[in-house]
């Protein structure tokens, strides 16, 4: 008993030290490496406009990925995000037909996102259903509604000032989308790492029962997370629709998997409880750089998906293999 000191220090390891040994640092090194390799393999890579174009590969997905990261850290998942984009985009297209202007379209996009998120949240938190099945269901349902509305048609004719969201530049090569991406990243960083709400998200993800027993309103927190994910899907829908200037029901098809991959690559545990926003930001850049770099080398998109898939499994498998090999 004499060897334990009466005084307990706050920390043994400084936050900086902890950060240096983290997943995010490793990932950042990977991103830098890819950047360097890319700049050597293609003469077109180190061009400001090309790099600016590159950011469009990930900005919309990353906006959703931040909200998805919180959701996955809290132990849930939303596979319906891409379908929410489709439905929100379809709703905006329909709103154009009845003559709504740009402000109205934005409200419609955000509103549909929120409603879809609320629907998912209701089914998961109020009815106690597993989110993976619920959102596989709503994934079909939301996109299905787009198909019912549009069939094999498309909505076009968006107002010209609507194009700013997906095609506008704020300053030189800095696009509006990129600025929006940066702001959203900052907001989610603060929510997750600097607020009581973020602390509750970690607590719930690590042990939902323990969190509930500690007086956290678990269902309420999860409901808000579904709302946020829906809202971000609405934001992404506005940007994407504006960028494409058209809506088909197949819009953003398969994005949910890329978004989940981005989140997991960013170091968020798919089992919940751990992960960070900086990790997701770096992962977004890594995926953007890989896609862009391979694109410059004329590698077809489907082959990139092999790289992404291998990356997804590899980043989780390699540390575990290393652990196994050591013991």
């Amino acid at each position: 008993m004499t060897d334990t000191t009466r005084f307990i220090p706050d920390r043994l390891q400084s936050p900086l030290e902890r950060r240096l040994k983290s997943w995010e640092t490793l990932l950042l090194a990977v991103a830098v490496a890819i950047f360097i390799v890319n700049s050597f393999t293609s003469p077109y890579f180190l061009n400001a406009w090309n790099l600016s174009d590159m950011t469009f590969n990930f900005t919309e997905k990353a906006m959703i990925a931040f909200a998805m990261a919180l959701l996955i850290i809290a132990g849930e998942i939303d596979l319906s995000v891409a379908s929410i984009i489709a439905l929100a985009s379809t709703a905006m297209g329909a709103a154009v037909q009845i003559g709504l202007g740009t402000p109205g379209l934005v409200l419609v996009g955000l509103g549909v996102g929120l409603i879809c998120g609320a629907f998912n949240g209701f089914l998961v938190t109020k009815m106690g259903l597993p989110s993976i099945v619920v959102t596989i269901g709503t994934m079909s349902l939301f996109r299905g509604i787009s198909y019912i509305v549009l069939g094999d048609q498309a909505y076009r004719g968006y107002p010209s000032d609507f194009s700013f969201f997906g095609q506008g530049y704020v300053f030189w090569v800095i696009s509006f989308e990129f600025v929006l991406f940066a702001i959203i990243a900052l907001v989610y960083f603060v929510i997750l790492h600097k607020t009581n709400f973020g602390r509750a998200v970690y607590a719930i993800g690590n042990n939902p029962v323990g969190a509930e027993f500690s007086g956290i309103r678990v269902a309420r927190v999860k409901f808000i997370l579904f709302l946020l994910t829906g809202l971000m899907s609405g934001v992404a829908a506005i940007c994407l629709t504006s960028r494409l200037a058209s809506t088909r029901p197949s819009i953003a098809f398969g994005w949910e998997l890329e978004i989940v991959t981005m989140v997991v690559l960013g170091g968020v545990s798919i089992l919940g409880g751990s992960g960070s926003i900086p990790g997701v930001v770096i992962a977004a850049f890594v995926m953007g750089l890989v896609t862009f770099g391979l694109g410059l080398l004329n590698v077809p998109g489907i082959v990139m998906s092999i790289v992404i898939g291998a990356l997804l499994i590899g980043v989780i498998a390699l540390p575990r293999l290393w652990e196994k090999w050591r013991t």
């Binding site: 706050d10 602390r199 970690y202 042990n207 969190a211 500690s214 409880g273």
Partner: peptide, 21 residues
């Protein structure tokens, strides 16, 4: 382990969880 604490979180975060307000 399951109900009382959140074992993967540090001591201070467990203690302050219901008192964060």
């Amino acid at each position: 382990g399951r109900q009382g604490t959140i074992t993967a979180l540090p001591i201070f975060q467990n203690v302050t969880l219901p008192s964060l307000g």
